[in-house]
Design a protein around this nucleic acid. Sequence first.
DNA 1: GCAAAGTTGATCGTATACGATATCGTACTT
DNA 2: AAGTACGATATCGTATACGATCAACTTTGC
Lengths: 256, 256
Amino acid sequence: MGHHASEPGGTTVSSTTASSETGSSETGSKSERAYAAIKEKILGGEYTPGYRLVLAKLADDLGFSVVPVREAIRRLEAESFVTFERNVGATVAGIDPTEYLYTMQTLSIVEGAATALSAPLITGSDIARARAVNAAMRESLEHFDPIRFTALNQEFHSVLFENCPNPHILDLVHRGWNRLQALRSSTFAYVPGRASESVAEHEALLKLLESGAKADDVERAARAHRAATLDAYLARNARDQPVALFHEHAPLAPSH
Amino acid sequence: MGHHASEPGGTTVSSTTASSETGSSETGSKSERAYAAIKEKILGGEYTPGYRLVLAKLADDLGFSVVPVREAIRRLEAESFVTFERNVGATVAGIDPTEYLYTMQTLSIVEGAATALSAPLITGSDIARARAVNAAMRESLEHFDPIRFTALNQEFHSVLFENCPNPHILDLVHRGWNRLQALRSSTFAYVPGRASESVAEHEALLKLLESGAKADDVERAARAHRAATLDAYLARNARDQPVALFHEHAPLAPSH
DNA sequence: GCAAAGTTGATCGTATACGATATCGTACTT
DNA sequence: AAGTACGATATCGTATACGATCAACTTTGC
């Protein structure tokens, strides 16, 4: 599936149109292509966190001058894919493990909201599609492939929130997923035990949607679902993590 | 008060540190200064929505070349302060009235969450400060000055959400407020009747916080507070607005 | 032998220059 | 008279060039 690439030419809203291709083809300005290319390499794991992005080298590899590359870096910076230090340069971000926590928590909130807003617009065929994806996930539990499972997981959730009528919120959700993708810990490889629970919760979510549940309840459920994954991660890596920062993981989760 | 200027040198997270100065002084690179200067003029209303931002002219006014200005524009674009079209140029964003709706709705969600997460960390003196600000708001109801009232309003809410331990969420809140500030409809001038209600709700919010309410309830209240402002706006300008897009304004508002 | 200052190399920041593209006005055609 | 084609102008996009800054290394003085 596409990467939900952020498009610069977007309308008034910050974009992230689902313009599919982050492909390096010959679309748009060099500035854009540089952006797409670098981003792809980050998401693809070719540039791992901490990797030093030298303007001249990037420009050289891509075959054009540094100016477009600089602009690309600026954008990546604004989307926090890279860190930038004056007169020093850019490095791939996402080293910090707490990043994962922050991102997941943020995503739990915005995705919950997006799903709730999207709910009334979800059609029967959407549900069917989601259910099919979830079935594929269930199957893949046998010969567990974390990468594939994670990809399917994203596809499943996309169906649920993609109808969100508020483009801002949708954009935030896309950014969140993007960020996770670059964070390698996002993989279910890090919380294997969570996979089957996840599938079960997905079905519950679908039932909830089919029943025409109130937006309120949908939001709670969606948020809780993600918060549960976060909790699973925390339980597994429970050590010196600054968990203390989080007095409540999901303030709106079923509060029992 | 500061503008919550976005700092580029920010850590892994997308920044928007409260680095005070959006000042045009001689801080940082020209790229930064250009960013700050242009942003200030947009927020200050000097560049109104639709205004065409010509690179050469901006560079000329600022006294340096177009390259840093281009980068500044890129950043402003990423934060959706300006729209950009290839080979055409940049214009100040925010013309679309639905933008206001989207922004307010998004803010209701992220600010609600931020306030809830912030709640356990709010000290007695914070509350006192917020109450003082609210008192000032109450007074200013007499000789109603929408600008001042709006500024105080922001200050009030800042106290409540600024302790949010998740920098991502905090950043989203800042962006939301920033965006509103550039949207001129953000002023209470557009919903004068709402002002006194707002003050009352503020006091209720403070009482809730003092009582050590559950995060869940705090989030509801904060979100509902903002949603109410949005509703007031909609009620006032209820016409051909695409209100239909919003099947629920605030899915998590007190549902009884 | 160690610390502080000087030096070198790599990389970034900005300016200038030129080619590419879109928009607008004008002239020509039907 | 209306529409289309063409050309001029404004503006953007990218390349190249050079000065500025930081980091690491070497040298010098104690």
